[in-house]
């Protein structure tokens, strides 16, 4: 029982990342009709926003400590972050420690801007081209973006730890009446789940309860009619692209403490998120979220030892297996709308 609860928690956590990326993919697909293969790269850039903020906060000056020597036997150069000399060592250190939450503030404008530039600079030229062209150009863009990141940050993963307050684990089992230390779950992963829930709720409320959102939804349903009513729907869709980029970016920032960011983390998530979108139903926002959590949980269960003993290797194919079954039984996906990609 404890193993099952743990895997449900794991699944919800994995599902949060899938759902956030798939949500952005669906937003872009639903509004602009573009299958954005660079979306994983936006998630990766988000994680590197956290790395960048950490680097900015730890910008240091060097002093020579004559009492110690470096690996070559020369006097050792000691680095002190500027921020520690400005605010004192204690305050400085705690500001650095909180670099990931601070990175959220940094990532929102940066990601909106990157999303806007991507759409205006490249993707808008491909609206009237076939889907295959769109896939090729966005996939190419993803490779360019990840190579750029690798050029500046290297190929090795870079640790961006969560603040000390969120390290360690929460004893979930005790809440449910289990013995202590049976079901423990890392604090930051719980934070990630909560954060994802808030972002998803915010996106849905924005689309549901604001005039802007209403127009966007109308545009998603019938772009031409909304245009004929004199509304500049293209501009709004560009903003939605920026918003989708920001959602992927925030998913990336918060993911940075879970697994150290590296330049190809976007690709690792992209294919899975794309499967999530297909399973949820192309163009369906609730479908993307539902499928994200569903596949996250299924993937976690599939990697349990008990399951792997019966079906070796199932953890590697479960997501694709589910996708095949869903597509065979419900070709539009779990919550797909009629008419999407069917003309």
């Amino acid at each position: 029982m404890d193993a099952i609860i743990l895997q449900i928690l794991n699944g919800l956590d994995k599902g949060s990342a899938y759902a956030l990326i798939a949500l952005g993919l669906t937003l872009i697909f639903g509004t602009l009709g573009v299958v954005n293969f660079a979306h994983g790269a936006l998630f990766m850039i988000g994680a590197f926003c956290a790395v960048t903020v950490q680097r900015l906060l730890t910008l240091s000056y060097e002093t020579v400590d004559p009492t110690r020597t470096d690996f070559l036997g020369n006097p050792m150069k000691v680095k002190t972050p500027y921020i520690e000399s400005w605010f004192g060592p204690e305050v400085g250190a705690s500001i650095i420690e909180w670099s990931v939450p601070l990175a959220i503030l940094f990532a929102i404008p940066v990601m909106l801007l990157i999303g806007y530039a991507m759409e205006r600079g490249l993707i808008k030229h491909f609206y009237k081209r076939p889907h295959a062209d769109q896939i090729l150009v966005t996939f190419g863009l993803a490779i360019v973006l990840q190579e750029l990141i690798k050029h500046y940050y290297g190929a090795n993963p870079i640790q961006t730890p969560a603040p000390d307050a969120f390290r360690g684990s929460f004893d979930f089992g005790q809440l449910l009446g289990f013995d202590p230390n049976v079901i423990i779950y890392p604090y930051w992963r719980l934070v990630y789940f909560g954060f994802a829930a808030i972002i998803i709720a915010a996106v849905f409320s924005f689309l549901q309860f604001t005039t802007f959102g209403m127009v966007v939804r109308a545009g998603m349903a019938d772009r031409e009619t909304v245009g004929l009513l004199g509304i500049d729907i293209d501009k709004r869709f560009t903003i939605m692209f920026g918003l989708a980029a920001a959602v992927a970016g925030l998913a990336g920032v918060m993911y940075a403490p879970i697994n150290a960011p590296n330049y190809h983390m976007g690709m690792d998530f992209l294919v899975l998120s794309f499967v999530v979108v297909v399973v949820g139903g192309m163009g369906s926002l609730p479908g993307a979220v539902l499928a994200g959590f569903l596949l996250g949980i299924l993937e976690s269960f599939a990697s349990m030892n008990e399951v792997k003993t019966i079906l070796p290797g199932i953890d590697q194919i479960i997501i694709y297996l589910v996708a095949i079954v869903v597509l065979l039984t419900r070709p539009r996906g779990l919550m797909g709308r009629k008419g999407v990609m069917e003309e």
Binding site: A3, N10, K14, V182, I184, N259, S300, M304, N305, D315
Partner: peptide, 22 residues
């Protein structure tokens, strides 16, 4: 007590780590 093979492409090992706990 156990040897669990993990796919080379894995990025998040939480679902392999969790069973170690108990």
């Amino acid at each position: 007590v156990n040897n669990v093979l993990t796919p080379l492409a894995s990025t998040d090992f939480s679902s392999y780590i969790a069973p170690v706990l108990n």
